[in-house]
Nucleic acid binder design. Sequence first.
DNA 1: GAGTGGTCTAGACCACGCG
DNA 2: GCGTGGTCTAGACCACTCC
Lengths: 243, 243
Amino acid sequence: MNESAPAAFAYKPLYVQVKDQLVRRMIDGEWQPGQLIPSEMELARQVGVSQGTIRKALDAMTTENLLIRRQGRGTFVASPEESRILFQFFRIVPDSGETTFPDSRVLTSARSVAEGTEAEALGIREGDDLWRFERVRAIRDEPVLVETIRLPADRFPGFGDLPQIPNNVYGLYSQRWGITIARASERLKAVGATAGDAARLRCARGDPLLEITRIAYDLENKPVELRVSRCLTRTTHYTSELR
Amino acid sequence: MNESAPAAFAYKPLYVQVKDQLVRRMIDGEWQPGQLIPSEMELARQVGVSQGTIRKALDAMTTENLLIRRQGRGTFVASPEESRILFQFFRIVPDSGETTFPDSRVLTSARSVAEGTEAEALGIREGDDLWRFERVRAIRDEPVLVETIRLPADRFPGFGDLPQIPNNVYGLYSQRWGITIARASERLKAVGATAGDAARLRCARGDPLLEITRIAYDLENKPVELRVSRCLTRTTHYTSELR
DNA sequence: GAGTGGTCTAGACCACGCG
DNA sequence: GCGTGGTCTAGACCACTCC
């Protein structure tokens, strides 16, 4: 392939180099979410490696949920519109087991300035501009959680001018700014409801809430969203699979 | 390979059949935790397939944390003694980020009878015998969580005769009864501390706790342990990676 | 140097989706 | 029937570990 030979001190297998090159096409917007990408044989010709090596790169991207492969149809760029992706990043489910996705109602939205912990989490400097908005999410009209989302202003130009914010914000990030959320890291704690939480969630002050602090990363592994959710878990729970 | 041809209505790729066959060797105790298994070439000869097919089966088992492969040395059965396995099933970490593993102190241990929800979780019948024990776990002498563990008595004969219960119970399950915990499923809720929790965790009654309900499964995907942990998260948190 | 797992290649055939 | 991804094979060479 048309790439410099791997240096002895930093050996990278060919298929990893190929994978990085293909991810780059997604970052650059050449391959957009939902799009059908060329077949394995075609990519092998383009990149100049064997079909088996292309396959290894595509398989790695598939296990990272960047691609979706369909036998007989082709390989597609994963899209945040699809329901399977929604649930990839939403782990609060009703105890009953049904798979309902919550509605959202935005409470406040404003431009502000990053404080120390916010800046650290988002990899920006203290004092840099942020978009910050707060919303309540409900399942079957029962409020389940209240969350505050913070976005670095320079990555989301014009965010404040939006007439409204959709339920699925990862779809919005993708469509409006070409930002794909590739992975996220969460920290969970149990906390007591504040007076504000209590009013919004129709519970008592001090009631136990599940607090989820999430940092979401883009394709280049840079943090792009900080989200703190405080959830009522009377009739719902957070699921986690350990393997 | 010496296996009947796949039926048309239930096609299973050859490498999956091989994988099932190799997992069977672990279930039957032919391959024990920590043991070096035969090389790819040797297995290919034994099973009667190509080395590439053996490799696919071994890779699948490696991603499920059943095997550990070391270039130049060989392939080993994963062992619950190794630190990496311990943290695979322990997601409570200090906020500071250090990786300390908690001590345990057993409070109560008794034989009892399965109630409805316990029986359902463990896939046994209501009224079947259970071992049930409760312990407090501490990091640096600070109590962090109190947990109750329930085991189906027929899978763990002689459990009640043990002089003491070690910190790492998954190592015990493996050594004493040949039971390997392959995966676990957790449900998290925020709850208020009971009077009993408060006394054991040195907190106030009603303080918010993170309640983790875990069902752990063996190599045959049968539930073998039900565990409910109630955790103080003042200086610790539960981590979760979303991909 | 011998043996192991890891990568890369090339080619054949199978299962699937669609026209 | 054609093109796609999925499986299976066979063989070469590379990187790593240990003697």
